[in-house]
């Protein structure tokens, strides 16, 4: 598949602290790429670097097949963005804000109507934006980002501050963008549930480092069930089972096995008992995405 965004050791250092540390991000055409991480993980800084709002201290970014810092104008002409809180001129009406973007992007009049229709703001377009609710401002921000119907849409926490119905609306809108308009979406969030419902690919960042990158299926495969066995003597049990062709791993007070079938579980249990090793516990545990995420990002940190 065609790469829309690829970064190579992209880094940003403030003093001695790395906000983003050698991040290699890959977003393919038609993806809804969920960029996930706790607050302060480096998501916004990475996205800002992809838009030239922050100068990287190392690495490079290739966007739409071109090196960003050498082809900034061309790339930004085909990229729409909504970074952090929505940007708007509060004293202007919704349509006037769109006209500001139209002048900047040099696009046709019909795009304004279409973008406003997509975010369902046609009826509110003549109202001053200062009087909009946060959700409406967010939707206007998305409409402004969509105005030129770019090839790449970068959205930083697009559902921040929205109520549940607003979140649902934005989610459906984002999901529809790739197949309806051919737009590749790169969106960040600190909410796993949100990314889980929208994204086709995921990148998990924490403390500036990219900890995981792959398809949603790959991330979900990490949640395959594990068998946990607690015996009287785990070390002897481990040696015995390795000798019989199993691959147990000592994990605290347990021996853990990945991808073990029911028949194999029974077989393992029988072998241990026959060898005179008492089996104290035998459990099947399945990690949910949240625990995978917490495991990757460090349990001590809060998600929100």
């Amino acid at each position: 598949m065609h790469r829309i965004v690829s970064t190579h050791s992209l880094s940003k250092r403030y003093g001695n602290v790395y906000a983003v540390n050698e991040v290699n991000l890959t977003v393919y055409e038609g993806d809804v790429y969920g960029f996930l991480g706790p607050n302060g993980a480096g998501k916004s800084t990475t996205l800002k670097m992809l838009l030239g709002l922050v100068q990287p201290t190392g690495g490079k970014a290739i966007i739409l097949g071109k090196e960003f810092y050498k082809n900034r104008r061309v790339i930004l002409g085909q990229t729409g963005a909504l970074i952090e809180s929505p940007s708007y001129y509060g004293h202007l009406t919704g349509i006037e804000n769109m006209r500001v973007m139209q002048r900047l992007r040099n696009v046709a009049d019909k795009n304004i109507g279409e973008a406003l229709k997509i975010v369902r703001l046609e009826d509110q377009k003549d109202k001053k934006v200062a009087q909009y609710s946060l959700g409406m401002k967010q939707r206007l921000g998305i409409a402004m980002a969509l105005l030129a119907f770019p090839k790449l849409l970068i959205l930083d926490e697009p559902t921040n501050g929205l109520d549940p119905s607003g979140i649902g609306e934005i989610r459906e809108l984002i999901k529809a963008l790739p197949h309806k308009y051919g737009i590749t979406v790169l969106l960040s969030s600190h909410l796993l549930s949100e990314i889980e419902q929208i994204a086709t690919s995921v990148g998990i960042i924490n403390d500036g480092k990219l900890l995981f990158q792959g398809s949603m299926e790959q991330l979900q495969s990490k949640s395959q069930p594990h068998i946990f066995i607690k015996t009287q003597d785990n070390k002897v049990a481990e040696r015995l089972l390795i000798g019989r062709g199993f691959s147990p791993v000592i994990n605290g007070k347990y021996l853990t096995f990945q991808g073990l079938q029911d028949v194999e579980v029974a077989q393992t249990n029988r072998m241990l008992v026959n060898a005179g090793i008492d089996v104290i516990r035998l459990e099947k545990r399945k990690k949910n995405l949240e625990s995978i995420f917490l495991e990757l990002t460090g349990r001590e940190r809060s998600l929100s």
């Binding site: 800002k48 838009l51 030239g52 709002l53 900034r72 104008r73 930004l76 002409g77 990229t79 963005a81 970074i83 952090e84 809180s85 929505p86 940007s87 708007y88 001129y89 509060g90 004293h91 973007m101 900047l104 992007r105 402004m144």
Partner: peptide, 17 residues
């Protein structure tokens, strides 16, 4: 002030101005 109030610098710069 309108650029500060509306947080519009990133909007303008990401539109390559």
């Amino acid at each position: 002030d309108m650029e500060h109030k509306g947080n519009t610098w990133k909007l303008l710069l990401s539109a390559c101005v």
